[in-house]
Nucleic acid binder design. Structure first.
Lengths: 342, 342
DNA sequence: ATGAAAGCGCTAACAT
DNA sequence: ATGTTAGCGCTTTCAT
């Protein structure tokens, strides 16, 4: 690395230093560095050489101030503890790094107010934002989208570009799987009432069971946390259902723990399907049958869309407004044949 | 929220607008907003009222450009997939938000080159950095620390403020625990060779076994990933040891999976102790006896130190240069009595 | 193709 | 206590 050896804090090199060294104007240096091609090839090379020699690093603040582009993208997650968001963040990180953007991480703590407040405050220091799990109203999202480029994940609002993970589609598959195992009494364990995907998953469960002429019910809502699993598990036992689809793996893993404590065997007594396939779903006990979501990919795609939104001059209608990523059912140990009688 | 209703993108409000509205100079507005107390109470209130009315949001770039303070702290992690770092990030996030700092997340991909390159490039857009798991040499860290305020986590270099999680101290406790269960042949499963904590943990294992007159050996090094657990597990079986201390939980959980596949029972055939107590250590199978580290707290403390480093005018020697956070042994299912014969 | 000059929004001396 | 004036480093017209 060309790190300066001197430990003393020294005045950073600016384009003026390069200009002085090469005998051109500062504006030429700026052009040579930010839009090569708009400058003579040989002078550009001289400038680049000088920049390298002086170990020049552009000042992003100054650039942002005059150009309006900050080179920073915010990624908003609703609760940084949830491994689901680890995957998202990992995906966005990869894609942003590849495009030389910086990633500002914001935890909205599941609060729509905080979400809008943060975005509003940082609006000027951002080129755009990825909203993973927005709690905002359709209208708020719509307005926001006119203020600053945004892409949502798992939240669809007309006119706002989004990446949807097709968990509802997968849920149908999961329910079919349970039915094929002989289950006739399937309940949906509901996540937070404010969660958009939660509603979608519930509808998918209901539609699929209905198509088979089976009844269904939902229990909850429960916070999507491991600790809430206890309450959810107890509620589940009370229903006397033989199988359940759980809002997400986080909650499902919490339920598994509680069921074990109570001596309810999975899958012998009750089968369970989770959603997401987060870190841990493959090594909990029993391992969890779940809807594997392309989480990391969702992060990558969201950033790709956002950057094209920012960069492209193409008219809005040319842009892909929304993409849907498929999920698939990963069958592990937590689902099995229904027993004849409970 | 005081979000403007108009969806049209409009020129942001500046201090000049406030100045014009209140009839004072822009500099007074600046003072009133950033250092109240240096301005008359009533004019300040008028200014604040106007700012509120116009829905003013300071432009961080401009502020950074002229003041040199960016209000941004970088947090560098070596591999964003590891849940250990999510604990750190959660801690830093909390503390930074409380102090109204923005958090820039950087994944160094376990590369010292990337680490120094990123920091060097962003030096001017940062007020400081938290290095969780630095791969840099002592000298590089020392130099860096003169360029920009940094606090390291789990890496001690003279003159560089650090937060140390006392896992080595806990390791001794873990080894005592195993010895008390009758184990006489304990191996250390090594993490990455470049990892500083890895060495410290190994030394602690060796010192403690030696104090009891017992032999010990290490196997590895292995990357601290779940997949590497297979190789580590196979190597462990070959040693015929009855117990092991593993570099971290990530690797340990990977080993658990492999041992199960091979029909090696934990803890009946072999006992295992991990390090960190990451997400998953309490629900893997069997649940993992491990050294619980105050991960989130480490993140919080690191930020607190960093901010005081940045803010305080107190002379360097007044600053806490280093803090050590204790760990404790959490006993779960993966450790048990040694069998007489293998 | 290049240079000169005017800001971007804010802060920080320096005056008053 | 407040106003005036210079920039911070860069990009961007507008000339040449």
């Amino acid at each position: 690395m060309e790190t300066p050896e001197a430990p003393k804090r020294t005045r950073p090199v600016t384009i003026n230093d390069i200009a002085a060294l090469t005998g051109v104007a500062a504006s030429t240096v700026s052009r040579a560095l930010s839009k090569p091609g708009r400058v003579n090839a040989v002078t550009r090379e001289r400038i680049e050489a000088a920049a390298r020699e002086l170990n020049y690093v552009p000042n992003t603040q100054a650039r942002a101030l005059s150009s309006g582009r900050t080179g920073t993208i915010a990624v908003l997650v609703s609760a940084i503890t949830n491994p689901f968001y680890f995957g998202i963040i990992r995906g966005t990180q990869q894609q942003l790094k590849a495009a030389s953007y910086a990633q500002l991480l914001i935890d909205t703590e599941d609060s729509g107010e905080l979400e809008i407040a943060m975005l509003h405050k940082m609006r000027q220091s951002l080129d755009g934002a990825v909203l993973a799990a927005s709690r905002l109203s359709e209208r708020a999202l719509h307005n926001l989208s006119n203020e600053i480029p945004i892409v949502t994940i798992n939240r669809h609002v007309e006119g706002v570009p989004s990446v949807m993970i097709d968990t509802p589609g997968g849920v149908s598959q999961a329910v079919e799987h349970l039915i094929s195992l002989g289950h006739r009494d399937i309940v949906y364990v509901s996540g937070p009432a404010t969660s958009w995907p939660n509603e979608a998953r519930w509808h998918a469960v209901r539609a699929t069971t209905a198509a088979h002429g089976l009844p269904t019910q939902r229990i909850g809502p429960f916070p999507a946390e491991r600790l809430s699993g206890s309450a959810a598990a107890d509620a589940l036992v009370n229903t006397r259902a033989t199988a359940c689809v759980v809002f997400n793996d986080m909650l499902a893993i919490g339920m598994l723990t509680r069921l074990r404590e109570r001596g309810v065997r999975v899958p012998e007594d009750v089968s369970m399907v989770g959603c997401d396939d987060i870190f841990g779903a493959d090594f909990c006990h029993p391992t969890l049958t779940t809807l594997t979501a392309p989480i990391e990919q969702a992060g990558r795609v969201a950033v790709a869309m956002l950057l094209s939104l920012i960069t492209d001059r193409s008219p809005a209608h040319t842009q892909r407004r929304s993409v849907v990523l498929p999920t698939h059912l990963t069958i592990r140990e937590s689902t099995g044949h229904a027993v004849a009688v409970r």
